[in-house]
Every structure is written in structure tokens, then in C-alpha cells.
Write a protein that binds this DNA or RNA. Structure first.
Lengths: 232, 232
DNA sequence: GGGCAAATTTAACAAAACGTTAACATCGGA
DNA sequence: TCCGATGTTAACGTTTTGTTAAATTTGCCC
């Protein structure tokens, strides 16, 4: 909501986790809403119009994934997904279905709050409408108009593919992107299986942009999932 | 004049008026081009890419107004319209359709020349952004008013095409321009596929301007994309 | 309008950049 | 310690860009 505090809808069947989240979120910065099932979640979303959703993938009635897919047909509300450890497949499927970020249980409240802040910030920028003509984070700078990339003020020369890949990551800065998503959007739908392309080009980008390519500061890999361009 | 004069396309069916304009325009300051019909005018525009158009509204085949509307879908070339006395309605419609100025017949040559100068100046300003009369970067200097180019203070002779290409790059200095963009704006819309023209002329420009043409300092290529004139 | 010089357009070929691929190394979790 | 996922490197083939010179067109003076 534009006025007052942002509202966060938690869709979660486990009472213990709900209790923790209610305490952690509802106190001062956010308005806390909750739903115990996907069905209930759907009505909550359409009647309360929350600013962000925290969704547990292991729901009793309807699969959380199914809920997400349905939601994405008509809404772009940011969704942070909670998964049980080891359910890597579900996590990736959720991201591919339009989730913005994920957290593996058990998680710390501090981390969840940080990810909520990041997602809300990205969402606000998206709504700001005008696509920023430059991206800046630390000493990495991308000028989309001039098609130039700088590290510490010095221009870096990128190939067409490298530039495409980097700008794609930058436009979704801070967000986890699955390998499939990246390949689909940067190379094209026919290339979703070509993970090697991504590895090689990511390596080249790190080589050109990172001070220490072995310890990347911006182009971080989310093992088992994909990559993320860290912002600031 | 080392770099060619602005070219003006006159679209006019009346032979007498054409004769007057040819004498008045074609003599020294401008290159005179002509077309007798709107159809002919369209091909002239797309193949010769003139700097300005003088258009008679009373054409035999297609209405001059119609021509103007079609033209404005793909080109911003300044157009000065000629109307017969009393056809006020047409005049207004022409301005609404994208004409830059108008003149009522009969008109004096002096007035037409003044309006042409004004329109060309406005057009140059539009393209240059700021109305800078000179471009300077390192020891490369372009005087847009005198149409002269200097390297380390010594004047360099450029062909008309070379000059057009260089000034186009200079007016977008620092920005990467795709081959298509350059071809469309420098050669004309009919030439967007003629990449070879661009390669050859770029080579000639480098030969004339760069200290080491193999390691260009200003006229850099953005592989897979296009070219860019680096500024300081 | 003919003829000359300059400019542009072609064509053929060379060089460089790029994407793709394979083979192998390394890392991190079970 | 094993295995899958990710990182690294170099080579290959293709596409893009550069180079040169010749053919054609254009502008222009007479």
C-alpha cells in the first residue's frame, strides 16, 4: 500500500513458523496478514492486495507451485518462497514460475527481513516506471544508452553476448535467476539446456569485471539454482 | 569546400518554378535535386537522402499532403511547403502533418533562402543536441559551420560522404551506434543493408584521421554492434 | 553533351572477433 | 570419498570486420 506500512501476506500452514513470522514482521515496519492454505491465500491477495507474499511451498490443499502459477497470470506482487532443505527441484520450479527469491528452512529472521527489503525495493523501482538509463553498484557502472560498461571508472569492452548477459542480470539486479530463465531470455527458448554456454560466458564476465574472479563480488552463483548480480 | 554542400530536393510539377529554384538554389551554396511527382520524390528521398525538401502542395499524381504524411512515418528531414495564394486550409494541414515552414506563391528568392537557412540550422541543432559549432577531442577538430576537419591543426580533405559520416558520429560522440542506424541516417533508409559501404568509408576515415589506423583512437568499432566516436 | 577527376560502389580476399565445444579441474555436499 | 555441479582453458569453425583495388557513377568544366 502506498500509505502506511507495507503489508506482507504469509501463506503458511505450520503454526510455529507463523508465530515466528508474525512476531518478526508484524511489529513495526510491516503490516502482517496470514493465510493457512493456498485457497485462503488467493482470497486474501485479491481482497487485501498485499505488497509482498511469503509463500511456503509445502502446503496441504493446493500445491504452492500451482498457487504461484495461477497468481502470476494476473499479478506481479513479489513472492518470496520458503522451502524445506533438500527440495532443490521445487525451489527451481518456483523461481521459474515467477518467484522472486527463496529461503531454505530453517532461516534466520535477519536474512528474511533483508530479502523482503530487497524485493520491495525492486518492486518500487519497477513501478517507478521509467527504466533507469544507468545501473550503478559499487564501482560497476552500466550505461544502457551508450552501451558502455565501467569498472572503477575505466571502460570495459564486452562482446555482444557478454553485454546481453550482463544487462539482463543488471535489470534483475539482486534477484535470483535460474539458469533456465537466463538461457531462455538471453540466448532464446531453444537454448534452455545449454548450461555450458552460461558457465563459459559467466566466467568471461567475471574475468573482465571482478577484481578477484575466484571470489566474485557481484556475479555470484546460487549453487544448484542459478546466478545473481548483487547490487550494492 | 572540402566536404560537400547541403542538398535540397525540390518536388514541383511546374517547369517554370523549377527553373527559378534551380537557378536560385543550385548555384553555389546548395546541391539541387528535383522530382516532378510525389512518387518520384519518394524514391529520390530514400536514395539521395537530401538535407531538406521544398514541396509544392499542388502535385498531379498524389496530394502533396499525402506525401508529407507518408514521409513523416520514417523521416524527419525538414520540409518547406509551397502553396498557392488563398489555400490557407492546406497550409495549416501541411504544418499539422509535419511541415517545418511554408511559403505562399509568388515568393521572393531571398525569402526562400532565408527560410531554408533557418530550417537547416534548426535541423542541425536538433541533431547536435546542443548547438555547438565545433567538435573537439584530442587533436581532432570539426568545424560544423565551415565544414572543415582538422587533425593536429592541419586541415584534412574529406569527401562529402566521409564528412557526413564523421559529423554524424561526432554529433553522437561517445555513444555506440548500430550499423543500421548509421546507414539509415547517413546514406538513407534504402541503404540499411549496405554494411560494406560503411566498412569501406570507415576505413577511409581512419586512414585520413587516425595516427595508427590499425589501432584507432577515435573511430572505434563495437564488434557485433556498430561503431562509436570516442570523445576525450 | 563530352571528357576528366573525384567520389562512390563492388568484388575478392585477409584478418580478427566471437560463440561454441570438448576435455579436464575444482568445489562442496552427502 | 564419491558424485554432481560449477569453473577453467584452449581449440575449432563461423561470422563479422578490415583491406585493397578495380569498376562504375557522379560532379563539373568546357
Amino acid at each position: 500500500m502506498t500509505a502506511g506500512r507495507p503489508s506482507i501476506l504469509v501463506i503458511e500452514d505450520d503454526a510455529e513458523i507463523r508465530r515466528v513470522l508474525k512476531v518478526g514482521l508484524g511489529h513495526k515496519d510491516y503490516r502482517y496478514l496470514e493465510a493457512l492454505t493456498a485457497r485462503e491465500g488467493t482470497t486474501e491477495v485479491s481482497t487485501r492486495n498485499p505488497d509482498l507474499i511469503v509463500l511456503d511451498l509445502g502446503l496441504p490443499d493446493l500445491d504452492g507451485l500451482q498457487f504461484l502459477k495461477e497468481l502470476r497470470k494476473w499479478s506481479k506482487i513479489p513472492v518470496i518462497v520458503l522451502t524445506a532443505r533438500g527440495k532443490e527441484k521445487d525451489k527451481i520450479k518456483a523461481l521459474d514460475s515467477g518467484a522472486d527469491d527463496y529461503l531454505t528452512k530453517p532461516f534466520g529472521m535477519g536474512e528474511l527481513l533483508a530479502r523482503i527489503r530487497a524485493a520491495l525495493r525492486r518492486s518500487a523501482e519497477r513501478h517507478g516506471g521509467d527504466a533507469e538509463p544507468v545501473f550503478e553498484s559499487g564501482d560497476l557502472k552500466i550505461d544502457f544508452v551508450r552501451r558502455q560498461v565501467f569498472v572503477k571508472g575505466a571502460e570495459v569492452r564486452l562482446s555482444p553476448m557478454e553485454y546481453r548477459l550482463l544487462t539482463y542480470l543488471a535489470r534483475h539486479a539482486g534477484q535470483v535467476l535460474t539458469q533456465k530463465q537466463i538461457l531462455k531470455d538471453v540466448w532464446g527458448a531453444a537454448y534452455v539446456e545449454k548450461n555450458l554456454y552460461l558457465r563459459v560466458h559467466m566466467h568471461q564476465l567475471r574475468h573482465k569485471l571482478e577484481a578477484d574472479p575466484a571470489q566474485p563480488r557481484w556475479l555470484v552463483t546460487e549453487s544448484g539454482v542459478g546466478y545473481r548480480l548483487r547490487s550494492e
